[in-house]
Simulated assay, not measured.
Amino acid sequence: MEITRQTPPPDENLSPDSGNLTARFARGADQMMALLKTLGGARTPPCNPSFLYFRQLTPEARHKVITMLETTLGVCTEMMAEKSNPKNGGVLAWRVLKKMGFQPLSDAFQSYSEGDIVEIYNHHHQMVFASLNVFDSCSYTLEDLYCRPWIELWERDPKITALLFEKAIYVTSPECHETLFLNIPAHQVRETSSHEMLRGSVSPKIFSPVINERGDKGFLSINQVCEAAVSTGRSPQQDQTP
Rank of each mutant, 00 (worst) to 15 (best):
L21A: 13
K217Q: 15
K37G: 11
L182Q: 07
L198N: 06
W94S: 14
M80V: 10
Q6M: 06
D116Y: 11
R95H: 00
L164R: 09
R190P: 05
L198Q: 04
H195D: 12
S137C: 03
A26D: 10
L182A: 11
E152N: 02
P9I: 13
E178L: 04
K99C: 05
Q56D: 08
G40H: 13
F54E: 04
N223L: 12
E82V: 00
R156C: 14
P8L: 02
P204I: 03
M68A: 04
K205N: 03
F219I: 13
L73A: 00
E119N: 15
R55E: 00
T192C: 12
Y140P: 11
P86D: 07
P16D: 02
I3S: 15
E191V: 06
V230S: 09
L105P: 00
A29V: 05
V91P: 01
A186S: 15
N133E: 01
T72A: 08
M32P: 04
Q110H: 10
E227Y: 12
L164H: 05
S231K: 05
A42R: 10
W94L: 14
L57P: 02
A23K: 07
S84I: 11
R199C: 07
A186H: 04
M127C: 11
D136E: 11
V202R: 10
M68F: 15
K205F: 03
I120V: 15
Q237E: 13
F219K: 10
P104L: 09
D107I: 07
C76W: 03
V202I: 14
Q224I: 05
K64H: 10
P104G: 01
P174F: 12
E78W: 00
L39Q: 03
R199F: 00
W94Q: 15
K217G: 09
A34L: 12
S208M: 08
T4P: 00
E178C: 05
N85A: 05
T172H: 05
S106D: 14
A61R: 13
V189P: 02
E2F: 07
E78R: 06
K167C: 12
M80C: 01
R27G: 02
S113M: 03
